[in-house]
Design a binder for these strands. Structure first.
Lengths: 137, 137
DNA sequence: TTTAAATTCTACTAATTTTATAGAATTAAT
DNA sequence: ATTAATTCTATAAAATTAGTAGAATTTAAA
């Protein structure tokens, strides 16, 4: 499941994608427009900025805008950025690999192979969803 | 991600699947054989019993055995039983549907459609993985 | 009928993660 | 200067996860 944080991030990105190109949105407008708690959204936008998904302008008349194009931002990427691994266990993950502490011999683990198959399918699907594709319904 | 509980449940089911048909395994043997904390495993086996995945025999020389055939038990089923929805948000779930409290109009939600597509793909993959298929590597 | 060995049940706890909120500091435009 | 925005640091409440403890019950067998 997605955390609220990830859900809010996706909604915020969708909101920004729907504004005119280079229009600068204030946090409060995103919060109201996308029904996201404002203070929580502040943190999320800062995270998105650190991830180079959005840019910001400080001070009066400041705000946020998309940095990456909406065709480039995938669900897989946002999921990994906020919620981590796509795989169902760390031992089946590409980007967040970790061995299981309870695993005697990973190469003989019967579970892992199945989970890698699932991860491949899910990943393919999640990489196909972009902010732009979501917008087009 | 799978919870440890779900991971342990799958490992326990795999352990049972690998014993001779109708052999009754003691909790302690499953715990040691599959590297699962024994007390935690007790709870998990009780849950699996209540879900009619395993059967038990009480008292001395008691223990657990598979009730459903290993070809019938899917990853999707075990995931739902312990960790709940396959979908990334409750609003995109079949079995655990709930509307988002922050959603103004679900039919207009741009996120939901994409998440339903993901869920369909993931579900198909997870229904294809059974305890028996895991065993065959 | 007693003992041993297993499941079953209820309750508790400790740690972690999630979901925020508070408030001060900084920045920039007017 | 003033206003209005982002930025930063810290805190906190709630929920979830991952277990543990210990007594009760059940069954087989001596």
């Amino acid at each position: 499941m997605l955390s609220h944080k990830t859900k809010y991030a996706l909604k915020a990105l969708l909101y920004l994608a729907q504004q005119d190109k280079d229009y600068i949105s204030k946090t409060i407008d995103i919060a109201v427009g996308a029904s996201i708690p404002k203070k929580f959204l502040e943190q999320i936008l800062l995270d998105l900025k650190r991830g180079h998904f959005v840019g910001s302008k400080q001070g009066k008349f400041g705000g946020y805008y998309l940095l990456k194009s909406k065709e480039e931002i995938t669900l897989a990427e946002i999921h990994r950025f906020f919620d981590g691994a796509i795989a169902l266990l760390p031992c089946a993950s590409i980007n967040f690999y970790e061995p299981c502490s309870d695993c005697k011999n990973e190469s003989e683990c019967l579970l892992r192979h199945g989970l890698i198959a699932i991860r491949n399918e899910t990943l393919k699907a999640m990489e196909g969803i972009t902010i732009a594709s979501l917008e087009k319904k």
